[in-house]
Design a binder for these strands. Structure first.
Lengths: 334, 334
DNA sequence: ATGAAAGCGCTAACAC
DNA sequence: GTGTTAGCGCTTTCAT
């Protein structure tokens, strides 16, 4: 691997000059620049990122921390983050945490010593205090789906509660009489908000009872189990609002096995709008988050923070949209 | 951020001693070790990875290069790679390339200057010569799904052709009379092999004609379009073997729109066995690759190469298994 | 058992 | 315009 020193020697200049050429800094005679570029090409020289990082105290890289690479919601968002990052010459490290506090903190520490310039953090278990260290190291942060108390933290989220309401209302609109809810991990605000949305709509109805809520974990398997429990507990359930698409898919499976006709005997609504939701059979009605836009905006916001000292923090709450598909298109109302 | 110098000062020792403590190298008096560890704790010191990297010429990180983060096959494999890597103290960089030659080469160069210790490469467009540079830099490589000419390169793959045969034979077994194939990008060996498997079975049958093969791109949308074209060209098709699960899902959608009953009017078989394949409605019959095992073995193999000079390269071809689900469980044979 | 100092490859302040 | 040199934070010989 050729180093800057080799190039300097080859071109008959100092390493400082080579460095200037590489980084387009300072003035250099056209002629020397040409010589240097030729030397670079000849030696196949590529600046060493690690050395640059050490010297610059920055890496031109950002991290996208996500709780689960198995939930397509995050890869879909990661894709947007990558697109924007790449356009601006940044590399993206994708970090999978299973949302375990230990893993997240571990990543946070490590990323700091890797001199990443910014972090987009999808995690609900991290507290404001955990971010202090990063701030001291001048690492910008954008939180997803989590609004922290701290004013300096920029956060992106969607209107989860309103989304939960839309989903539930829609189920009533298509004629459901008993609407149950499969919630995500209940100590995650996102899951709570969606549940609140559900409660806003059915919480005061005469038939409602907390047993219509089944707590699950945002996975397909979890949704499947939760749905089966609901069927046993409340055979009369004719509508389910699941806290995300994966659980909705699990519920769909369970309904199939249980011999419940979709949507006439049981209507289902998911949440997220991952690509897959349009591909289930029948296609899933869901509350669509602007996934790509979220990633895009978050990364742009991060760029703002990284490159502009005075960039001010903000909290953004995007709208969600109910996408009606066949899991709620009833041909008859019961 | 505390540095090694701060710790040394705090503990009243030299930086060399601190370094020894951190890395458990050389002999150190129990007493000094304790003092140093206390200083580390007190200052919240974390060794700087970039500096370590520069000094060691290695990073304790590996890269997993994949063509598409949108095909769950790769995240599923990445998960296995991560699990193994983590157990051995390695970090995994996930690199998304869309299998564009330029992007892959770009990553390869950059990863080298990041001092990654090894690379698991999912790419069909990379040639043996492209890897030469990495070898010179002592970076170990494991190729996935691609057997290169070079003896030094370890490669993992599955028996794609045999898999294609199993899928196609199965379709005939359940009574299909006209079996079509939706192939992946045809300059990818993987796709070709699966197609060859298909041809091994139907290529000599009297009705067979190349127009029963529709070339697509491994995406859901692609599979959807390809299936529609097939339906127009050959309305008599009653069985489809798709080159991967995503395309099979697309075909399923198309069949639905076209009003073809699954599986009685049209049976479908996919390839890969991604989690999602079990969740379609009806669940998809598919040729299951040992996805987790592939990632696991590949990472273990990489570890072998990275830590043992004499570790010898090998080519592994794993078996695939036909998983029969409802897209081919006919209740009547036509 | 511990310390001094060189070096990993690069950037940037300072000199000419 | 271009070169010299001092770091960036760490590891590792070589002394002691």
């Amino acid at each position: 691997m050729a180093t800057i020193r080799d190039v300097a020697k080859q071109a008959g200049v100092s390493i400082a000059t080579v460095s200037r050429v590489i980084n387009n800094k300072g003035k250099i005679k056209q002629e020397t620049e040409t010589t240097v570029r030729e030397a670079i090409k000849k030696l196949n020289y590529i600046p060493n990122k690690v050395a640059q990082g050490l010297s610059n105290q920055r890496s031109n890289a950002v991290a996208f921390i996500l709780p689960s690479i198995s939930n397509p919601f995050f890869p879909e968002m990661a894709r947007a983050v990558e697109d924007v990052a790449q356009q601006h010459g940044y590399h993206v490290f994708i970090c999978n945490t299973d949302d375990k506090r230990e893993k997240v903190l571990n990543y946070l520490d490590n990323l700091a010593t890797h001199y990443v310039d910014g972090i987009i953090l999808n995690s609900h278990i991290i507290k404001e205090a955990d971010l202090e260290k990063l701030r001291n190291n001048n690492i910008s942060i954008v939180m997803m789906d989590r609004v922290l108390e701290h004013e300096e933290t920029t956060a992106f989220a969607v209107k989860n509660r309103a989304g939960g309401r839309k989903a539930t209302e829609h189920l009533l609109d298509v004629g459901c009489k008993r609407v149950a809810h499969i919630s995500g991990v209940t100590d995650i605000p996102t899951a709570q908000d969606r549940m609140w949305g559900y409660l806003d709509v059915v919480g005061t109805l005469p038939w409602y009872d907390t047993s219509y809520i089944s707590r699950s974990d945002f996975t397909v398997e979890g949704g499947y189990q939760a749905a089966k429990e609901l069927f046993m507990r409340h055979p009369e359930v004719d509508g389910i609002f699941a806290g995300n698409d994966l659980m909705a898919i699990g519920a769909l499976r369970a309904a199939h096995e249980w011999g419940k006709a979709i949507p006439n005997e049981l209507a289902i609504v998911g949440f997220d709008g991952i690509d897959m939701s349009a591909l289930t059979t029948p296609p899933m009605t869901t509350v669509q988050q602007p996934i790509y836009e979220l990633g895009e905006l978050a990364m742009k916001e991060l760029l703002g923070h990284m490159n502009d000292e005075a960039y001010e923090a903000k909290t953004v709450n995007l709208d969600v949209e109910l996408i009606i598909r066949e899991t709620t298109m009833r041909t008859q109302q019961n």
